[in-house]
Write a protein that binds this DNA or RNA. Structure first.
Lengths: 227, 227
DNA sequence: GCGATGGTTCGGTCTCCACCGAACTGTCAT
DNA sequence: ATGACAGTTCGGTGGAGACCGAACCATCGC
């Protein structure tokens, strides 16, 4: 009984329709801007701002400033599971969602996340590069080692210059572990598309790993995917 | 977004500290009286009454009238899971609970529920008696057949007379299937204790199945438990 | 019958909070 | 610089609801 106040506080946050709509809009793991969430919540931007402040304060959401935009996303997979379990009790239809979407198998296997690779493939690449000592991911950024730069140059995926962050871990909503975002992630993805290792599928963010890609990922990264 | 109002309504119910305390008190699957819940919630009985009405109205709790008492319990295992997932996010210590209590293995195996047997043993006994055509359980009561009376007489567990309900299914919170309550359940449990088939453990409602009991349950009921 | 006890309903108070209009800060573009 | 846009802070309003005192209904025990 001692720490029930804490769960009541969390539940109360979800107990407001506007905030519930916000959480629902984020349930698929995307990161959305405050304005989009205001639209989803069907309340004014000012009100939304207050809601978002409370939700991030309570660590249900995380923010990511990017220029004049602020991107909000679910703080952890636990939060998504919580929402789903409440939906189950509320008798709501569980929409396409991170953990429980039967038709999402291709998406979980490999997909694009903005302009970089995600899903099992994205996480596997991040793991491979980390394990070989090419990159070092930390919560607030990522470093590329000397050997890593050589490897990337050789692979043909050297990121260009730009003011965008160079390398950043991005929490993968289906795998719940980080994959590589930033200029490096974009360069890697771009090179994989150029090599014909992966191919976009129609009307979806899922990507297919081609036969050539299968051997290529295995040879260059030691990555083999069952799917 | 369409059915988010429903989840907001559920969450709002849990968002009140008093109601959260009530739910927490019921989290272990027991059925408690309104007055006990008022104490747990730390509010007056009148206020508690209102809360309980709302919670049952929303199908988070079920009531069971018994004389002038009303016993409340969680409406379904889904509700318990929901509470636990919220606790996980809220960072609260998860107390002994139905689905996720590592130390509860003995309790899940065999325990007393008021004065009758529950857990895997209790459910197995109910199944055995049902399958052999000795009893027939229905949601609102239970019947004992001719053969069943003979069996019980032979076993030495014929229930005495009394105004208490004779035979009633009682939803087992760990097995999520009914075991036998009522005078019949009490008589069965009493006989099992007398025969030395089961023994109470200190400071807990868990009971141990003795070696004699193991062979006895197998011989008379065809019941064998792995634990 | 009687009082005692568990539980509910009613009425009124009081606090909390979602909401928006208006004004403000900061970033991007030209 | 200037305007456009994203987002926040502030102040005030209105409604929802948690709470309890008091009265009421039902059941139990004698």
């Amino acid at each position: 009984m001692s720490d029930m106040p804490r769960v009541a506080a969390v539940a109360a946050l979800l107990g407001d329709p506007a905030r519930a709509n916000i959480m629902n809009a984020l349930l698929d793991g995307r990161a959305l801007m405050a304005k989009e969430l205001a639209f989803a919540a069907r309340v004014s931007p000012q009100t939304t701002s207050g809601h978002l402040a409370k939700l991030t304060q309570a660590a249900l959401l995380t923010v990511e400033q990017q220029g004049r935009h602020r991107y909000f996303r679910l703080a952890s997979p636990l939060v998504g599971q919580m929402l789903e379990s409440i939906m189950a009790v509320a008798g709501a239809e569980t929409p396409r969602t991170a953990t429980s979407w039967k038709g999402g198998e291709p998406l979980r296997n490999a997909r694009t996340c903005y302009d970089h690779l995600a899903g099992r493939l994205g996480v596997a690449l991040a793991d491979a590069l980390t394990q070989r000592g090419y990159i070092a991911l930390s919560p607030d950024g990522g470093e590329v080692t000397e050997a890593g730069h050589a490897f990337l140059r050789d692979f043909g995926a050297e990121p260009g210059l730009g003011k965008r962050v160079f390398c950043r871990p991005c929490l993968d909503w289906s795998e719940r572990r980080p994959h590589i975002a930033g200029r490096l992630g974009a360069a890697l993805a771009c090179r994989c598309f150029d090599l014909g290792w992966v191919a976009r599928l129609r009307d979806t963010r899922a990507v297919a790993i081609t036969p050539i890609g299968r051997t290529g990922f295995a040879a260059r990264f030691g990555v083999t995917l069952s799917g």
